[in-house]
Amino acid sequence: MADKILKQLKIKVWRQKNAKSKGRFETYTIENISTGSSFLEMMDILNNDLIEKGIDPIAFDHDCREGICGTCSLYINGRPHGPDTEVTTCQLHMRKFKDGETIIIEPWRARAFPVIKDLVVDRSAFEKILQAGGFVSVNTGGVPDANAIPVSREDAEESMDAAACIGCGACVAACKNSSAMLFVSAKVSHLAKLPQGKVEADTRAMSMVAKMDELGFGGCTNTRACEAECPKSISIMNIARLNREYLKARLSR
């Protein structure tokens, strides 16, 4: 479809100098944006305008711009990754907005993800959860032939569905409790569905859940907001599986 030009947009955006300072909204005007541009290209143009005007540009996280690295993390018009489905912020395009519209941009909001600057948040809590057990304890070398352990196609596919998580944090941002259950359950499911991951399944579920609680993420109340906003369509079936794995682990202690 032919691209159109959005003559003017108002961008109302969260500005916060650093983790310690108090933030506030600022509104900027931007003109002549092609509907074929991506949302982050619009941000690039706005930032270059701001630089030329002597205003500090808006800091935001982004990297691959192909929807796979999980770096971009904007909360746009009240939705993680904005008004489109199954996309990350970097895949969102300006054709989803109307000329003259005011677009509100906020960082992920969660106690476990403190703001570093403007729209950039610290997601190292996710790292700590994975370090608590999101792996299979094998060293390099000395492993069996790849075809020595058959895995049913169904299990491999279900494992892959969960492993598609990009660790962006939209699930936490979408949840009124800032729960990380979808994220944790995706990793637990990815490994629990494979024979390689089963050996440590009990300790993995226990220690990842303990770490998640320790880091200040809230509990899950089954609102399914996480699933609705997940750019990779990770299913809450994984949360059910995590609960099962966790219970199984508790009972076997």
Binding site: T140, A146, R153, A156, A163, H190, K193, Q196, G197
Partner: peptide, 14 residues
Amino acid sequence: IDQCVAQGVPFGRE
């Protein structure tokens, strides 16, 4: 490939 499978990489299967 052996190493990745042991780590739990969900490769496509028959």
